[in-house]
Amino acid sequence: MVIRESLEPAIFSIMFPRTAVDIFIEIIQADGGTRCASITAASLALADAGVPLKDLVAGCAAGKIEETLVLDLDDTEDKYGEADLPLAYIPRTEEITLLQMDGSFSPEEFEDAMNLAITGCKNIYEMQRETLKKKYAEIRDETDSEDDVSEEGDLNG
């Protein structure tokens, strides 16, 4: 439910009346941060499927372990740390679409943790963009080389 709510604001659903988008997420191994990883992966899959999006959605958690703010907790850190704050972010519009927290934060820590998680999301967002670009760069390279072959064939003929 939180994953749906964190992705829906990014989708131009108004362009698809009476249409449902089904997203299936399978967690192969859980070691903390499954929610955020799911959102990051699902938004990439949406983009890969060609669903019109406002922007990609990136997910990342911030937390607190022994009074120190940390980014992206693993399973052990989540269990024994003092706080966990998963967040999903649309970088282009600077909107938060997922925000949860459990543990204990003072007001100052809360603000710092939120900003830390947003920074994490922005880093992941860059990786998401690179990944998408790389895919189409590969396709372009492939088609380019195919073109070369056919051109050579023409010359020889």
């Binding site: 704050l85 925000l99 949860q100 459990d102 003072s106 007001p107």
Partner: peptide
Amino acid sequence: GDLCALQKGGDGTFKPSEVL
């Protein structure tokens, strides 16, 4: 006065400044 739990709900989105 410490924050111990937080949950955003509904379809909307929030700017970081709105959350604060």
